[in-house]
């Protein structure tokens, strides 16, 4: 869909892949996401930052359908998806990784990724041939597991992976979905220092492909600065600022709300 909404004096006209209007969700009396108008141009890389409890993950849950909004609407590629269940949104191209590793615990790493690959392939309807006999699926799984360096763990049950490996598996499953829109919820949270750069490499490679739109929730502000085209700041459920990384870091409102007046962060 085309958007003519402008922020300030700049009027943009870009095809947006995702768009929300007045999106809100309340738990009891508490507004976890409050009247968010958000627009994501196709192939953009946008980071969402904000303090704990700002509603970032809740916002993702609304986008991918795990939660139903109390108010507002969501469009994906011009079609309204506000009331679609998560599986429909996934099929349309909204891919999601979870902050708390959300895997299939008693299946192998390989099988976790294979099921994610299979989800959109016609092979999913096959009910007679052995699931490991489809080289079209196996090759793709091998490629993805290699990319996040989990190939050596392919036969390990997912529940026996280390925390960092589970996070990698999350990303592998997201890659496997081959979605147009990636929602990455703190992909490096809880990873060991050695593991982080590799995942960052995977993410920046995705970014450089410019084939997908990526929304990233992240706490590590420096990482966000390097990768993002745009940074959006959520605070107490509200979208308080959005713009190029450097501008956001110098935004006074953002600094008081989120960075606690740390002027040097933008320079780090």
């Amino acid at each position: 869909m085309l958007s003519q909404q402008g922020r300030g004096d700049e009027v943009t006209q870009v095809a947006s892949i995702l768009c929300t209007e007045g999106l809100s969700v309340a738990f009891g009396g508490h507004l976890a996401v409050d009247d968010v108008d958000f627009e994501v141009p196709e192939h953009a890389f946008i980071s969402i930052i904000g303090p704990n409890g700002a509603g970032k993950t809740t916002f993702f849950n609304l986008l991918s359908g795990q939660l139903k909004p109390t108010k507002g609407r969501i469009w994906f590629r011009g079609a309204e998806i506000t009331h679609l269940p998560p599986e429909h949104r996934a099929m349309l191209g909204v891919g999601r990784s979870f902050q708390i590793a959300n895997i299939l615990p008693n299946l192998t790493t390989f099988e976790n990724v294979r099921l994610a690959v299979q989800a959109k392939r016609p092979e999913r309807f096959r009910f007679f041939r052995h699931h490991r006999s489809f080289s079209s699926l196996n090759d793709r799984v091998a490629e993805i597991l290699g990319r996040v360096s989990l190939w050596h763990k392919r036969e390990a049950l997912a529940r026996y992976l280390t925390h960092g490996e589970k996070r990698k598996l999350e990303i592998a499953m997201l890659l496997a979905m081959d979605s147009a829109l990636f929602l990455l919820d703190e992909p490096t949270a809880g990873m060991s220092v050695e593991e982080v750069p590799q995942i960052l490499d995977v993410i920046s490679a995705l970014r450089d492909e410019r084939k997908r739109t990526i929304l990233l929730i992240e706490h590590k502000v420096d990482m966000v600065l390097n990768l993002s085209d745009t940074v959006a700041v959520l605070h107490q459920g509200r979208l308080i600022a959005q713009g190029p990384p450097q501008a956001i870091m110098q935004n006074e409102l953002v600094q008081t709300a989120y960075l606690g007046g740390l002027g040097h962060v933008g320079a780090s």
């Binding site: 795990q66 599986e87 996934a90 979905m177």
Partner: peptide, 9 residues
Amino acid sequence: NEARMRALG
């Protein structure tokens, strides 16, 4: 993991 399978589509 039912919820995860839904998220996969």
